[in-house]
Design a protein around this nucleic acid. Sequence first.
RNA 1: GCGCUCGUAGCUCAGGGGAUAGAGUGACGGUUUCCGAGGCCGGAGGUCGCAGGUUCAAAUCCUGCCGGGCGCACCA
Length: 561
Amino acid sequence: MSLYEQIKQKIYQRLEESLIKAQEAGELSFKEIPDFVLEEPRERQHGDLATNLAMTLTKQAKKAPRDIANILIANLNTNGTWITSCEIAGPGFINFRLNPLWLIEVIPEVIRQKEGYGAVNIGKGEKVQVEFVSANPTGLLHMGNARGAALGDSLATLLSMAGYEVSREFYINDAGNQIYNFALSLEARYLQQLGFDVPFPEAGYHGEDLIATVKRIIDKDGDKYVSMEEDVRRDYLVRFALEEKITGIRETLEKFGVFYDVWFSEQSLHSSGYVQETINELENKGYIYEKEGALWFKSTLFGDEKDEVIVRKNGIPTYFAADIAYHRHKFARGFKRVINIWGADHHGHVARMKGAMQALGNNPDNLQVILMQLVRLIQDGEIVRMSKRSGQYITLDELIDEVGKDAARFFFIQRDPDSTVEFDLDLAKSESADNPVYYVQYAHARLCSIMRQAKEMGYELSVEPSPEQLELLTSQEERDLLKKMADFPGEIALAAKMAEPHRIARYALDFASLFHSFYNSHRVLVDNAQLRTARLGLIISIRQVLANAMRILGVSAPEKM
RNA sequence: GCGCUCGUAGCUCAGGGGAUAGAGUGACGGUUUCCGAGGCCGGAGGUCGCAGGUUCAAAUCCUGCCGGGCGCACCA
């Protein structure tokens, strides 16, 4: 538990004791201790911590909140809590002021824990899987995938900082109808490139990348597939193209800073019989019925709007069947918690997938689906409609080349997944320096610059400041920074609990802002050796915490820019 | 039509039932003999979509309405 959490918990406990003491003395009557908060007030003048306890008791105690507050304060034991004063304010808040010296302990803490500072153990080593992007391997990655990649990867890092054992997984949709369509498109392109006049399939994939792929096949094998059986030809073309595509996807994601632990093939679920086995399992449990020649899953039993086809009339299982098998497989692999990042256009699947998990005997709450609104791309002041079929989309590769990995990742991670974001491409290209990521990176580079100069001036950076020296950090700017650093573990715990990495982006911005303010009003490399040592300890700690936050966001922490 | 979701400053977006709703950006004014001015400081800018309800207290929770996005296939 972080220092800050320990202090807060102590005060919580003392408040409850005060309540009980007041009741025993007959000063206050209540049945149960209400839920109350102890938090940092927004306004600094309201002290370091404030509680609404008195206000939550008004009904039970039948007294005015300010009177209750008085009684509570009178019965409060503040020994060993760092509290220096309590006052009643506003409608009945109790505001506490703390001895600022508690904050200096954070610097040795950061210096000792280094990149581990901020880590908490709410996960207790539990196995969690985050599945994200899982784009169809029939095309290139686009803006929506970019958002999913940034979000999923940061969430995974965040969860591991919070004590979970995290696995990143990419589900490869290498089976089904779309692959069949893909094969037909490849075949048409192949034959067209060799000069045959064949039509391109109506529902085919129009992307230019297919033509490039086909050209490579021709470079390698020439026209030898022209004379072959259709099935053999398509099978070869698809296998070649898929391998190429998946490799490309992997390389692009790695360029974006995203590395997966597992690449899971949908086809493997079909080949191994796991899909069929899963369907049998559901059938044995009585959740399957036949209608109009197809097999249906009774998803309405689990709150879905309608039942879903699981095996088509033609005997081929649907995508849904494979997906159920896939998620069953995840839990069978021992994951206690499974998180999926899906585009908002898939929200209709959430209820039925959870239902399917419940039908198979898993707790549906252990499957968490994070829906991400789609990215609206603006170019020349107009919305660009993205479609894979039409081949009109901005690829992740282009985004990385033109906007930059760090700027793009920060842009996506800053926003709540629920908000539809507008991405103005022209703005991002021409003025990418506007992206707030540079603000944070600049702070980091500046901190490194101070450290470089300190070194040049012959100051030792590895000396841990003494408590006496740290007590010299008394300015408002310094205290704000110390406080923010002390908050970091709590922020990680909260962000992990809520699965909201965008909180860390907010934290990094706020923290960088506090540093810039400090920098503009105080010098670090002063002549006074005591103060200088303390401030060096401070900036070493700030740099560390900032770097730790940036690592969660997946953006680099440059020493110079 | 039904379901999910969003509506907060000119624009892009934060906001854990709490006190005077914030940040970035844009426009405006100030700031460099001194560790990185890609910075800092300042004022201006708001019916938190609308209307009810719950509560000591609502941008936040509930209901209805309005507006945008998405979904409602034997596609994935």
